[in-house]
Nucleic acid binder design. Structure first.
Lengths: 102, 102
DNA sequence: AGTATTCGTAAGTCATGACTTACGGACAGA
DNA sequence: TCTGTCCGTAAGTCATGACTTACGAATACT
């Protein structure tokens, strides 16, 4: 829900690998784990974190749990970065101005 | 240098607080630490991480080390996110198309 | 020279969380 | 019903790193 939660979700390499796998399309837990050097339960735990951060969605087909990217969560994160960068850019402009006046 | 390094630098709340302080303008280590609930050495260590990630610059005036935001590092990070989101968006489009054809 | 600031680093503590294996539940198919 | 598959959770291990205090180096000021 918070920005920090999303950023911290992205900070773990294995979780980024999971997300990059999901860019290629929705996948089940087992399918995701097959492409990674960690166990299936580990992937399951990472998916829980990503789901709590709203970066991923879950739909159940029989015993298979299919995960896919959640655009909404990514947009929120992008909004935060845009806001941060706007602030940073303004600060840098001010700094340039101040050093010119100096 | 790597994207992971930058993202992991942003993942720690105290480091985000340091960066948000720097949006308001360049500051010395002591000034930054005064506004945070951690010790000065802790801030010094965080600044080292941020500097290694190219998110921050250091200039020395006497005994004071002045830190400021580094736009270059943030642009690299933004490029990564843009690329990721473009891929994610394309994936979502494909998913919609596939579900329509189904 | 002597003192005071400002800072980085060393060393050590401690919580967090990324992993593992073991287990049990839920659904599909014979 | 029984077996096999797919998955989440519990419990425990272990490395990482975010903090602390203590110290010493570098510069400024008198």
């Amino acid at each position: 829900m918070t920005y920090g939660q999303k950023i911290e979700a992205l900070a773990v390499p294995t979780r980024r690998a999971v997300l990059e796998r999901l860019i290629e399309g929705p996948a089940s837990v087992g399918e995701i784990a097959d492409g990674l050097p960690v166990s299936r339960p580990a992937v399951s735990q990472h998916l829980r974190v990503l789901k709590d951060a709203n970066l991923v969605r879950e739909t159940k087909h029989g015993t298979r749990h299919i995960y896919s990217l959640n655009a909404e969560g990514f947009q929120d994160l992008r909004a935060y970065f845009d806001q941060f960068w706007d602030g940073a850019l303004a600060a840098l402009q001010t700094a340039v101005k101040a050093s010119e006046e100096q």
